[in-house]
């Protein structure tokens, strides 16, 4: 480890002083920018969550009233529930399918690079455009209904069905993220020493046994990381809901972020929106802390040792 202990009196030589000055010249602007663009909004979040900002021209302090309103309003429970349902399915399916895809891609011989690229492409298309595409497909006279009619079935009003709306929102997000998750897993799989596999094979472990007894335990930290970051990201799903279901039918797929957006811009209740955002922020920060606790702490250890 390089000795970078900041003891008093260590900046004695001219060179060390110059280095300290250069380091501060780099880091202080970054620090100030972060104060302006990350910390200041956090202060706004806490401050305005306790006001009726938006309803009255000059925001009045209302204490915990916004939070009480949220806990007394049934629709917010359903918003949180649909967020949770979507996040659970998106994360779970994404993890399982992404892992499977990673394992399969990794065991490919020829054409591995090409196939990997193929699977990565949907992740390069913006969520909004993919959602718009799905939107066109499921229009009343869209391609999907034409296909159904050609097979002799009746057309379906997809946007009127709770199941299909969940299906298309979850499906779109999972499918778009699959390649990226697979690539993460490939990197994790390749970091496992092949000697371990060799040893397992000599000991007579089959392919399934190897998967459960060796591969999965060894990439467990990675699994945890992907699971939690995936869940946090899934709680922020917005475009598919806005563009495919518009929260419908009857607000069944209205996720919390869409409710936040709606309350602020359609109902101009910024204070209430902030209170909702604060709840979401608290939940995700809690998850992040769990993530740090279970992930390997090399980044902290390194810094502590430095």
């Amino acid at each position: 480890m390089n000795a970078s202990i900041t003891k008093p009196g260590m900046y004695r030589s001219k060179r060390a002083v110059r280095e300290a000055a250069a380091g501060l010249a780099v880091v202080v602007p970054i620090f100030i920018y972060t104060l302006l663009f990350t910390v200041a909004p956090l202060i706004m979040l806490v401050r305005y969550s306790m006001t009726d900002y938006g309803v009255s021209a000059t925001p009045q302090f209302t204490g915990l009233e916004n939070f009480i309103t949220i806990f007394r309003t049934e629709k917010y429970y359903s918003n949180f529930l649909s967020t949770f349902v979507i996040a659970v399915f998106v994360t779970g399916l994404g993890l399982v399918l992404g892992f499977l895809l990673g394992v399969l891609l990794n065991s490919m011989g020829k054409g591995k690079g090409f196939t990997r690229t193929l699977w990565y492409i949907p992740g390069l298309i913006s969520m909004a455009i993919i959602s718009q595409f799905i939107n066109f497909m499921i229009a009343p006279a869209g391609a999907l209904n034409r296909l159904l009619e050609s097979m002799g079935s009746d057309p379906v009003l997809w946007t009127r069905s709770v199941f299909w709306m969940y299906f298309f929102i979850i499906g779109t997000v999972v499918w778009r993220g699959l390649g990226g998750t697979a690539i993460l897993f490939i990197a994790g799989l390749n970091s496992i020493d092949p000697v371990i596999y060799e040893a397992a094979r000599i000991d007579g472990a089959g392919r399934v046994r190897t998967l459960f007894a060796i591969t999965l335990p060894l990439i467990r930290p990675m699994l945890g990381f992907i699971l939690i970051t995936g869940f946090i990201n899934a709680m922020g799903i917005f475009e598919p809901v806005m563009l495919i279901s518009r929260g419908g039918p009857d607000s069944a797929t209205k996720v919390i972020l869409y409710a936040i957006y709606d309350d602020a811009f359609a109902n101009s209740k910024f204070g209430l929106s902030c209170a909702l955002s604060l709840i979401v922020t608290a939940v995700t920060m809690l998850l992040s802390l769990v993530n740090i606790a279970i992930s390997d702490k090399s980044i902290f250890k390194e810094e502590a040792a430095a």
């Binding site: 990350t38 956090l42 305005y48 972020l257 957006y261 602020a264 910024f270 955002s277 979401v280």
Partner: peptide
């Protein structure tokens, strides 16, 4: 520690700020 702040939930506070 700022990495823990979820970008998506900050939409409205960002707007206000």
């Amino acid at each position: 520690s700022t990495m823990m702040v979820p970008g998506v939930a900050m939409m409205i506070p960002n707007y206000i700020w």
